[in-house]
Nucleic acid binder design. Structure first.
Lengths: 251, 251
DNA sequence: CGAGCGTTTGATCGGTGTCAAGGATCGTGG
DNA sequence: CCACGATCCTTGACACCGATCAAACGCTCG
């Protein structure tokens, strides 16, 4: 893969994402936009990183959706994160060295590949950027913790409702949609692997949520009829996403 | 709380822990040891941080064990990590600002409290330390991902066997024990909250593992009879702990 | 020695998994 | 634009793992 420096605004989704956690001054923004990178289009279901790889590039999503997952020895799959525009989809793998999980596209994706050495450099040359990226990985970890609680302690209806609330809020945060109505890019089997259920039970649970008047569905589109009731069913509170956290180190 | 600078080797467990991820030169080590901090003794079951707090100190474990957990709206509890000597137990909470989960002692604990501003400063003044701390939080995230898979896709016996393998390996990594035989500081109820089970079922499962000749138990002590068989039952592979990862950014 | 916590055991229930098959939708190529 | 195959969704019957409820037991530490 060839790396080219593109002085345009290609990487602006990253600037926007990192600014969710706190303002960045012009110098910091310019430094991000100036990162060397190479843009690629990827088809659905394509692997970005495979478990065991030693990626030397980090992948930034510019368009489309992707997910992280592990495959266990018995062949079952566990999805542990869904990613969207502006997410550094394998910062974790590329800095850690050997990938402990795979990353795969969900839809058609446009992605920028940035050399990991460039990430490391900008992190320390421009501390504000380094802190924002560190913060970003800490928020990812916070979401992992919430998923552990979701899968460990909630029943099927709550788990799925929770995932739908989270997805809507994340879309809204990056100004890509409305928490109350959006296109959900996952199949029921993928939802199952993200919630520790089976595809059959996800199907029944979605129909149940629909029958109870909590959601409406049409093709891949989901509409949440009553956000408050949905939050109640999900046991959802948005603190773990750390959107608008007034007391972070970044403020 | 009063902060005092102690030029001794009190913080050496942190140096040792961070060196799991790669060597640190003398200057970096000295900088860590010189961090301002205050040492405290804590009784078992005492809260170090509560969800919703805005901690301005990070807590480093010098002795004893602690765990992180969330309490859901229905009152159920989800434990998402166990911590031991050398772990920065609430780096995540203190940098994020508002704690999204609680941290509690498991046993009697000796801990050093370090101001978060000092953490932030050392991270950028001494990039090697900053990178090691970032790396450390990435390994935590990797462990969270494995726990998601553990709870989502393994049965009760595998989940518990997996937790026992992980605990033993972590003890061994910090030279505090032997993976094959150690004192497990958790009650069966805590094990249940860490594996998404109930205390009753943990009890039955432990007895089952014992009857199958996989483990032996006496009081709080656990002995793993056959590591290889235990790994098989657990579906355990140690890659996600990133001990001896030859291709990280730190090497 | 007693209280409290943690462990063990039994009986029963229920949520979710499994297996199997049919139906809908989508993407692709003719 | 239609045909066709593949993927995804839906439905039913049944099985089973782990939850629940209840009670007794045994440490351990004041």
């Amino acid at each position: 893969m060839q790396v080219t420096v593109q002085p345009e605004r290609t990487l602006s989704p990253l600037v926007k994402k990192l600014q969710l956690w706190g303002p960045l001054d012009d110098a910091a923004q310019e430094a991000i936009l100036a990162l060397p990178h190479k843009v690629e289009e990827l088809l659905p279901h394509k692997y970005i990183v495979r478990e065991g790889d030693r990626p030397s590039y980090s992948c930034l999503l510019l368009e489309g959706f992707a997910f992280r997952h592990k495959v266990l020895v018995d062949g079952s799959r566990s999805i542990n994160a869904i990613h969207m525009k502006g997410d550094m989809v394998d910062l974790q793998n590329s800095l850690l060295g050997t990938a402990d999980h795979s990353v795969q596209t969900l839809t058609r994706v446009t992605a920028a590949f940035i050399p990991r050495e460039a990430i490391r450099q900008i992190a320390f040359d421009v501390p504000a950027v380094g802190m924002a990226m560190w913060y970003d990985t800490l928020v990812d970890a916070s979401i992992f913790r919430e998923w552990i609680a979701n899968i460990a302690r909630r029943d099927a209806a709550s788990r799925i409702a929770h995932l739908l609330c989270e997805f809507g809020l994340k879309l809204e945060a990056i100004e890509l949609g409305d928490r109350l109505s959006y296109e959900m890019p996952m199949t029921q089997e993928q939802l199952a692997d993200a919630t520790g259920l089976t595809a059959v039970h996800v199907n029944r649970t979605l129909m149940d949520l629909e029958n109870r008047g909590l959601i409406a569905r049409a093709k891949k589109f989901v509409a949440i009829s009553d956000w408050k009731r949905m939050e109640d069913v999900a046991g959802f509170t948005d603190g773990y996403l750390h959107l608008r956290d007034e007391s972070s180190v970044l403020q």
